[in-house]
Write a protein that binds this DNA or RNA. Structure first.
Lengths: 129, 129
DNA sequence: ATGGGTGCAAAGTGTTTGCAAGTAT
DNA sequence: ATACTTGCAAACACTTTGCACCCAT
């Protein structure tokens, strides 16, 4: 296994993700870090987000087109506004018994499940009237 | 609203999706249709998959990198092998009460939720030994 | 006839990667 | 000293789009 180093860039990227609670995209993180370090490159941001996610330091929400990242690594569900693309955590608790159930039914070794609620946030509902 | 026509290409694309149960990607569908119609283009396949999905004639599974399509339009959950990328339907039944619950908690108007189980299929488990 | 649809190729997105130079350990 | 990282730019994979011609209605 590779030995990962504690580089300034990696630190800045991690801080940038944890500084927000809106599940930013890689590009938003790139822009945030760039405000501090003019030289950072997109490649570095993508590489480090992948490393940090693999390590389990960050987690990511798989959305169509772009993944979103967050500091909260406990298993939980997400809420996605299909109008404005806002993403937030949801209080409904993770149902680990479902993983067991599917494992027994299918013979898969289940690692986890991901649940994303799709809907329209209060602000966007207002705008549509 | 646009008036959609019943073109030969659209018919072939729909048939191609329904002929498989493995949740093919747009490109797999393109290849299948091409076996019948040498002239079909990728653009037409993408355009029609979007139209058919919007109409509710097909549904799609949102996976990172590529969407997958299927004929089954009833709400249901999916199973994704993270080794070989196989996708299948899962028997666990759709929990519509969760949508209600999240709606009450958050003020969102919830349309649906999507759940994808991630794990390793029996075949890939064998290969890893 | 008329407006949606098609094939084609080019343009878009978001992400990864090869390379030479730089740096944490 | 070693080998992981970086910035850069090019390459990638998937999808959308502008256009001129075509065809279902």
């Amino acid at each position: 296994m590779k030995q990962h180093r504690n580089t300034r860039q990696r630190r800045l990227i991690l801080e940038a993700v944890c500084a927000r609670s809106d599940h930013p995209t890689a590009d938003q993180i790139y822009l945030d870090v760039r405000a501090v370090d003019k030289m950072i490159s997109r490649g570095t941001v993508y590489r480090n987000l992948n490393i940090l996610t693999h390590q389990g330091t960050l987690s990511h929400v798989k959305l169509p087109y772009t993944d979103r990242f967050e500091c909260n690594t406990r298993p939980h569900y997400h809420l996605h506004c299909t109008e404005c693309d806002a993403v937030s955590d949801v209080t409904v608790s993770y149902q680990s018994e479902l993983d067991k159930k599917v494992e027994d039914h299918t013979g898969y070794r289940i690692e986890r499940h991901r649940t994303i609620f799709e809907g329209i946030c209060p602000e966007c509902q207002k705008k549509k009237d």
